[in-house]
Design a binder for these strands. Structure first.
Lengths: 162, 162
DNA sequence: TCCCATTGCATAGATTTCTAAGGAATTATC
DNA sequence: GATAATTCCTTAGAAATCTATGCAATGGGA
């Protein structure tokens, strides 16, 4: 959308010494792509009564069921309070059961319900088709170059944060 | 982190017909990168008393000051209630003034304060250096290929949502 | 002029995420 | 074995986002 100027002011030149248009920022490009992915995922899985917040946890539990909340947090890459909230909603939605571990009563094991297991294949297909649609018209060698570059960026940034 | 199996169950084979490991998903790679960018940005601008939610609006206002809330929402790419909330916090933080338009009393013009203008160059430098750090060790031609690919993905996804 | 559709902003309520701090179970140390 | 440190989960509170809805100003058509 074009920017009309009218009575609006442009900052004086000395205030604009630093320029950094969003289109030149990898961060902005990544953000836009992320939002596009998220929006589409959110809409498609909503049809199954699954929210985006639940999705990431299902994704991990579909690979390894019965993890503790801490293990889940680590694998999903979220902080523990986030996990508590997500699991609460998943339990309400009948997707998981939380079972206090007999061996170590501090731990809570998270187990998928039959319902969540039944959703697995269909929801993973949803994810795959979103990816396929995103990758339309992009050559395989470009895709693998893309993966290498974005992986490198993430690693660079993660390293900085120690 | 390796996944120990112990007593945890793997789903039976017929439930695993669809496989889609996160490492093969462009969506996951984009999500990880986005989170890495955001975390670093958030930490660095916090030193200036600016939050991530305010950042995107500053970014636009530093280019064109005095936009209405609706125009701001469109340029930032957020819904209007989000803009309301962000601007409220920015007004509290002394970054903007909201002025009801004399010409059309429905509109609210958003103007940067002197403080926000003073922050501009330093904060844009912060953004640029985060980008530079993310791009460390990536060749220029790889970077431009990356931009083309991720832009294409975003466009593909946006097109689907109509 | 008066009505009503449109436009612009705001509120309400939900979700997803974080940091900071607390409580309960377990393990280590003396 | 008693105390201290650690581990695991939870609560509290804030921020950033959305959808759905409401209200107030404007402008077009009868």
């Amino acid at each position: 959308m074009p920017q009309r100027q009218l009575s609006r002011t442009r900052l004086p030149a000395h205030r604009r010494a630093v320029e950094f248009p969003p289109r030149l920022s990898s961060g902005y490009l990544v953000r836009d792509a992320h939002r596009a992915f998220q929006r589409l995922l959110e809409r498609r899985i909503a049809a199954y009564g699954v929210t985006r917040g639940q999705w990431y946890f299902l994704r991990v539990l579909w690979i390894t069921d019965g993890l503790s909340q801490r293990e889940l947090s680590a694998q999903v890459g979220m902080m523990e309070p986030t996990t508590v909230i997500a699991l609460r909603s998943m339990e309400r939605a009948g997707l998981v059961r939380r079972v206090r571990s007999a061996a170590d009563r501090r731990k809570v094991e998270v187990w998928l319900t039959a319902k969540a297991k039944r959703l697995r294949n269909e929801l993973l297909s949803v994810a795959r088709s979103i990816t396929a649609e995103a990758e339309q018209g992009i050559a395989l060698r470009e895709l693998s170059a893309f993966r290498r570059v974005i992986g490198r960026m993430t690693a660079n940034l993660d390293r900085i944060e120690r």
